[in-house]
């Protein structure tokens, strides 16, 4: 190949490459295009739901598999005054509120949550970033708590309101962590509000006093520092309207993939 031709090819390649990159970045900020990309999230959810048994369990591991370096993520220690107050009294005054579209709103002390029907499981926690850690969790079955509160027929989602402000810079009130799941995941047998991790009281960095475990989805769905469980008919009007702290910031609401 002649030098001229080689130079020409290199220049053509560089030009095409930079056009391609600039084009991708422009599309990435175009709301219509990102809206089209998000359609795939619905396809994925429907495809997974279509082929998955509602009660199909996430893999459970043995005690030997438990990670010694289980990585905490998100808020490590909430600085919110109300949380610090509860932590200071070792959650004596903590009440888990279950309300919204329910017949009998609940306000349960930690002792009452611990007395509720429970489940213990050793599962793999898959972070959206790509890493995995294995831990042992014991907690109250969400299904039993919801049955006690008795959902109204119009309830479609369960929202978890948390104690931690993960984004203090948010001026629209959407800086506080929250997450939501649908009733299929809410009634899944492995969906629990965990108060124990690896046979010890749940540590603050992993979400004390209660964190959600929803084992068939990625880590950011597993809300920590849960204060209130609310049954709703729609996710509109919560945060920025996408059903969770990270979904409000461009992440997928359905995190089964």
């Amino acid at each position: 190949m002649s030098l001229d031709r080689r130079r020409w090819l290199a220049a053509a390649g560089a030009t095409l490459g930079s056009l391609w990159l600039a084009g991708c970045d422009r599309l990435a900020t175009n709301p219509t295009f990102t809206g089209v990309l998000k359609v795939a999230e619905k396809w994925t959810k429907h495809a997974q739901r279509a082929v998955t048994d509602r009660k199909a369990l996430a893999r459970e591991f043995t005690a030997a598999d438990i990670s010694k370096d289980f990585k905490p993520n998100g808020t490590m220690r909430p600085q919110d005054p109300e949380y610090l107050r509860l932590l200071g009294e070792n959650f004596a005054g903590y009440r888990l509120v279950v309300d919204g579209l329910v017949e009998h709103p609940l306000a349960l002390s930690l002792a009452e949550v611990r007395a509720a029907p429970s489940r213990t499981q050793i599962t793999r926690h898959d972070c959206v970033e790509g890493w995995s850690s294995i831990g042992k969790w014991k907690g109250a079955r969400l299904s039993a708590l919801l049955d006690r509160a008795k959902l109204k027929p119009e309830a479609r989602y369960i929202v978890f309101h948390c104690a931690d402000t993960l984004d203090p810079s948010a001026t629209d009130g959407a800086g506080v962590y929250y997450e939501s799941i649908d009733l299929i995941d809410a009634y899944h047998p492995q969906t629990i509000l965990a108060y124990q991790m690896n046979d010890a009281t749940l540590p603050v960095r992993h979400g004390a006093p209660l964190r959600l475990r929803v084992e068939r989805q990625l880590g950011y769905k597993h809300a920590k520092y849960v204060m209130r469980v609310e049954a709703v008919a729609s996710l509109d009007g919560l945060g920025r309207g996408q059903g969770g702290f990270w979904p409000d910031r461009g992440y997928q609401w359905y995190a089964g993939i």
């Binding site: 991708c24 990435a28 795939a40 461009g250 997928q252």
Partner: peptide, 20 residues
């Protein structure tokens, strides 16, 4: 990377759309 700046949520949107 696409987009060129760091945005995991957007990267996942692109990835799963084009995976289909």
């Amino acid at each position: 990377t696409v987009p060129s700046w760091r945005d995991l949520g957007a990267g996942r949107s692109w990835h799963f759309f084009f995976a289909w």
